[in-house]
Design a protein around this nucleic acid. Structure first.
Lengths: 118, 118
DNA sequence: CAGTATCCTCAGCGATACTG
DNA sequence: CAGTATCGCTGAGGATACTG
């Protein structure tokens, strides 16, 4: 159980990084271009978006298609494997919608106790 | 969409850290003691396990019960909120069982292409 | 047994500037 | 437009030793 060879363990897909899941969601509705992805993900630096996309491409979750035009045109699209992530992501999001408030409350309670004591 | 106030976004619960999910799974079958958790999670340093447990406790996922004995005896147990994570974790694990091989294959293909070119 | 204390490393994330 | 190049920081994660 949980040996080093078992990345599937519990969070098999923290989809690599902080942004991976969001990018997948952004691509759910169809192909998107580099700059289009930067709109919903305003806080992301271009370098980081590149890294994220490369990582997702490496894992076979997305494809990168270059149109030989000027100005350059590149599209990212989910593969079937990438789409297979959506149900699991949905399960996580549903948990969030249902329980995030409770979690936040627990957190305030915990932090509160610590603060009072001091 | 995806503003800073929306941690629920995609991976609402990378359950905090690398080990959080595994610890929750270890507690699924019932309460466990500190050292008992270190058995399946051999690679975890005591400091890190402590941090992980504190974090889970803070979020209301587990309770920490101290039995005033000698030698000391402490038990960690899932709360209902903690148990609510299990379905989402299960969804992630199922994805892993179903698709991890495909992902690994994609990764090797990708890395292979890069290596050949060099 | 159940932790703390201390120190360390590295990689993820980020900001900014530049380019084919 | 779609990136790369460079630099820097922070903090999660880890190894080891010690303690009530």
């Amino acid at each position: 159980m949980f040996d080093a060879a078992c990345p599937s363990a519990a969070s098999p897909f923290r989809i690599a990084d902080k942004w991976g899941g969001m990018v997948v969601l952004c691509l759910e509705a169809g192909p998107r271009r580099f700059t289009e992805l930067r709109v919903p993900l305003q806080r992301i630096a271009p370098k980081v978006l590149t890294e994220t996309l490369r990582s997702l491409e490496r894992d076979g979750f997305i494809t990168r298609t270059v149109f030989d035009e000027n100005p350059p045109h590149v599209e990212y699209e989910l593969t079937p494997l990438g789409r297979s992530l959506l149900p699991a992501i949905a399960a996580c999001r549903e948990w969030g919608f249902a329980n995030l408030d409770a979690m936040r409350a627990a957190r305030e309670r915990y932090d509160g106790d610590g603060a009072e004591a001091a």
